[in-house]
Amino acid sequence: MPSKMLQYAYYPGCVAQGACHELYLSTAALTQALGIELLELKKAACCGSGTYKEDSQLLEDSVNARNIALAESQNLPLLTHCSTCQGVIGHVDERLKDYQRTHPAYIEQINGLLEQESCLSYGGSTSVTHLLWVLIGDYGIEALQERVTRQLSELKCAAFYGCYLLRAQKSLPYDDPFHPESMENVFRAVGATPVYYRGRTQCCGWPIASYAPTQSFTMAGTHIQEAIEADADCMVTPCPLCHLNLDSRQPEAEKVIERQLGLPVLHLPQLVALALGVKPDKLGLDQHVVSTQPVLEKLGVR
């Protein structure tokens, strides 16, 4: 275990407070089990999931500079548990840090707006990190391994990373964006077996689901089917938006690709918490569209 208590300014994001409440629950349960302290950013706002930027770059930068400034004022790194939030806020942070040197006038413009609307200004003094990176980096994969009380040896897990976690930031702390291993390393640490398939680094289709459902669900359905063919017992994702398309919309995906699927999709903290012996009812495993019961049965947990 890390010698110092790990603390983060926790950015919950929209989806974990809405349709994926089980993610909110399981992040809380996991961090509690590991002794990681979270200070929730109650005043934060939606990162825009890439949509603000289509309106204007300034909008994406200002709202997220404000989010980062909230974490800066606590002197803590900002913690996300969503690939999309991480990609968006993490990229804004790396770009603004760069602009502090190369385009100071732009930083002044943003801070001018923030101050004028009585928000904290952006200083570039903290970092933005995802729960996955905290597990493998800050906490440490070996330390995590030592805490496992329930080896998930029976389980074959197919990672689904989410585009923004791999490709939105210019530099990634632990992964090659085309051949990531951090999810798989977590699987191995909890005793599970990683399943490799093409879809693990591809798009789930969520961004176009509201207006191009057939295309969107073809993407989701194809990836799920590939994971099943690779013999996965479940998918595991660090992104609640992917979860929406892969789990909540799985019945639509089945219709579109004309195949029965029925593959449970777990959130990353749900999987890890199960290995630490946390009870399933603390993890909202009953709040999925595709039943997670087969996973629990395989593990002999109830």
């Binding site: 005043k43 934060a44 200002s62 404000r66 923030l114 928000c119 009953d286 569209v289």
Partner: peptide, 21 residues
């Protein structure tokens, strides 16, 4: 499946965010 969000809790910073946007 118990997934439908029954409540929505606005951010405590909503006013600031609105005027910033």
């Amino acid at each position: 499946s118990g997934k439908f969000p029954l409540r929505f809790e606005p951010s405590q910073g909503t006013k600031e965010v609105r005027s910033l946007i």
